[in-house]
């Protein structure tokens, strides 16, 4: 039986809660002087990154190392991929090396699904195109739960470039599974065409939903994926959809501000807001390691994984 973490839509409520509860226990490890557990000794985790990433790759590397797994980092630049090797041949190479888990980031949506058919180990999606980024959604949910408690009935507003955002997609599914009410806010040009089956609300007016939000998650404006003009100017976008101190003031007292990073300060989020006490941006990075440890532990430690969809 092969089990992977490819999409948050595959996670049942029990699965998601098991990951978050496991992470809650593992969070203590980050506070110890010896930040290491022997659990995955002798297992090999390959980080297969076809797209640039700093925090996700480092976070997965730290998570695997804290569980004593051996980590092999593979980035497309400077590898045989630049000589024209296909994803399948790369997968077969990893398979031959005996990788127990492959953490993959790829520019093409669905690449992790393909990979899952070619290797015996567990595949963890670390972001595929504009499709999903499940561990980001899990760490976001974990951060919310630590700040706000149970997510049941909590109102989460996700603002910005939903069209290109795998973070938004993964969060919508996961937060819905966990009982939160999600509202997406974006200019019409930055929303996907077919959203009929998304379990969330959609709004074009940030100010209208601001005062009713327990969590405001800002998304990065992804310049590298902007091959058409989606909005008139950066200034106008920032005026209508940016989180500035004035908007922060209109949020409920307890509400928190999140951002998956990297940020465009002054564009979707003002520098003062990003650095304020209600912003969880730095916590999210710390929690990322913990949540990824939980995912690797649940997928790799036993004779068969405890979570994830069948492939």
């Amino acid at each position: 039986m092969m089990r992977h973490l490819l999409s948050t839509a595959d996670l049942s409520r029990d699965d998601a809660l098991l990951i978050l509860d496991t992470a809650e226990q593992l969070a203590q490890v980050s506070g110890r002087s010896i930040k290491k557990l022997p659990t995955l000794r002798g297992r090999t985790v390959v980080n297969l990154f076809f797209e640039d990433s700093t925090r996700t790759r480092i976070s997965f590397e730290a998570a695997a190392k804290r569980l004593s797994a051996d980590v092999i980092n593979f980035s497309a630049k400077g590898s045989s991929v630049s000589k024209g090797e296909s994803l399948k041949d790369t997968a077969l190479t990893l398979q031959a090396m005996g990788a127990d888990a492959v953490v993959i980031r790829h520019g093409a949506s669905g690449a992790p699904h393909r990979l899952a058919n070619w290797v015996d180990g567990s595949v963890v999606n670390a972001g595929d195109g504009t499709h999903e980024h499940p561990t980001q959604a899990l760490l976001d949910a974990f951060t919310m739960r630590r700040r706000l408690g149970d997510l049941d009935g909590r109102r989460v507003t996700i603002v910005g470039d939903v069209l290109h955002s795998r973070v938004a997609r993964s969060n919508v599914h996961l937060l819905h599974t966990l009982g939160a009410e999600v509202t997406l806010v974006a200019p019409p040009t930055l929303l996907p065409v077919a959203m009929g089956d998304w379990p969330c609300e959609v709004s074009y007016d940030f100010d209208a939903v601001l005062s009713k939000s327990d969590v405001v998650m800002m998304l990065r404006v992804q310049h590298e994926r902007m091959n058409a003009s989606y909005f008139p100017s950066a200034r106008e976008y920032s005026r209508r959809y940016g989180l500035d101190p004035e908007r922060l003031g209109r949020m409920p007292e307890e509400a928190i501000v999140m951002h998956p990073g990297p940020m465009n300060r002054g564009m979707e989020i003002a520098a003062e807001v990003a650095d304020c006490a209600r912003s969880t941006i730095v916590e999210q990075v710390t929690n990322g390691v913990t949540v990824r440890m939980a995912v690797l532990y649940l997928l790799l430690s036993g004779s068969e994984p405890a979570i994830g969809g069948n492939q």
Binding site: D21, Q25, P305, A306, I307
Partner: peptide, 12 residues
């Protein structure tokens, strides 16, 4: 650990 499915953690 490897003899059985992955298991939930207890409290520390």
């Amino acid at each position: 650990l490897r003899l059985r499915p992955a298991r939930a953690l207890g409290r520390t």
